[in-house]
Nucleic acid binder design. Structure first.
Ligand code: MN
Ligand code: MN
Ligand code: MN
Ligand code: MN
Lengths: 217, 217
DNA sequence: CTCAATTTTTAGGCATGCCTAAAATTCAAT
DNA sequence: ATTGAATTTTAGGCATGCCTAAAAATTGAG
């Protein structure tokens, strides 16, 4: 499967594109941990395959078929994460790494079976939306926990899923999607937040609070 | 993972080695659907890696570490087959193809979880033995159904798992591992067998009967 | 034992996807 | 508008794993 390489490029382009618009060579290189020169070369090939539009020095953008593949892989990734968590009891800080490999080998038939077994879920273990078979996805409106004010009660919607250590740290406090918490105090000068979860109080560093998305209750 | 290529070579060598001793370049090439010239080249690399012993024109043999990897992959393959069948309800004629891809991406942690979930199984859906974590495997003594005489009652131990069509055919008659059947008649001149399974009679072609292993009851 | 058929290896190539170093282009500060 | 810094591309290479055609070694039939 050299498919894997293409799929990882498209997924990375998708992620950057949906968070910051145009996708520069360097940004892609940093995300994929590949030299910019190699990215340029590969991006030309993707362009030849009509998976991205590419203008020299201007960055890339997914075409419709590129987007379709990206969402397909994303669906695989998130379904697998949930499947691993639910069916095999894999802790939420380990599912990402495993799904990163499985996503490329899962057949459509297995995708459907997993989807059905899980009851056609719409969110992965980190709260990220799972695209449906048509590539449609419900992005819930969400706010950064770090931007909220003291006194508010919020519900966790999603957390960043790349940092295993962070996930273990959050898990230790019971900070999972759909969990409710109160913001007791927000220290000034970008200081930590004091929060209350399930009747326990914790101090949460700014860095951590910036990885957590919430909605107001 | 170009690991995949090496793992597939070692698995193929293992299969040939355990059924017919020495492993010739051509046999390996045929099984892997790769030209003999390419096999020679790759086999040299495997030899450099100490995964096989290789003497020009004489074929290859797995070293201890080559054997270890082969059995590891085989364990993955068979555990996955059973997992797919049990956990996802995948029909037994489809599990092989899927496992062929998954076997190369499964982490040791997932292997252990699947193994535990299935209750440390010793047989895959086709009756093939699953090597344990140490690469040990219980090969049951088995006879070819095609070689048996009329009048005998036998139990299916294992069936060949490569031919999807055959598996569907056998499944239609309920011919799975651990199923008991009576041999009513064996037509002469390599003719078909008449068998009785779960009170129904079937005529089974020689070709099919040669793909089925049984033990006498 | 010989030699033609078969098997296996060698030689030379190709595609993929990565790299570093150097050149080209763009950006941004004056 | 200039120019130096940063970004991006080009050029030239390398490893992996496959191929075909040709050469070498083995085998086995007579
Ligand atoms: Mn991936
Ligand atoms: Mn996730
Ligand atoms: Mn395989
Ligand atoms: Mn099997």
């Amino acid at each position: 499967m050299q498919n894997q390489v293409i799929e990882d490029y498209l997924k990375a382009i998708y992620k950057i594109q949906t968070t910051s618009g145009k996708v520069a060579t360097t940004a892609l290189a940093r995300r994929l941990k590949i030299s910019p020169a190699s990215v340029t070369q590969m991006v030309k090939k993707l362009s030849d395959m009509n998976l991205v539009t590419y203008t020299r020095y201007q960055g890339v953008e997914l075409t419709e078929s590129g987007m379709k593949i990206a969402l397909e892989v994303l669906r695989h990734h998130r379904l697998i994460e949930l499947f691993l968590a639910e069916a095999l009891g894999v802790p939420w800080d380990k599912v990402h790494e495993e799904a990163e490999k499985w996503e490329h080998v899962l057949s459509e038939d297995m995708e459907d079976r997993i989807d059905a077994l899980l009851g056609h879920p719409t969110r992965d273990p980190h709260g990220a939306p799972i695209p449906n078979r048509n590539g449609e996805m419900v992005e819930t409106s969400r706010l950064l926990l770090a931007d909220q004010k003291a006194g508010q009660t919020v519900e966790i919607v999603q957390v960043h899923d790349h940092d295993s250590e962070l996930l273990r740290y959050l898990g230790g406090m019971g900070l999972y999607p759909n969990v409710e918490l109160q913001i007791l105090e927000v220290a000034p000068f970008e200081g930590p937040l004091t929060i209350k979860v399930a009747d326990k109080e914790y101090t949460l560093g700014r860095k951590a609070a910036e990885q957590i998305f919430v909605r107001l209750l």
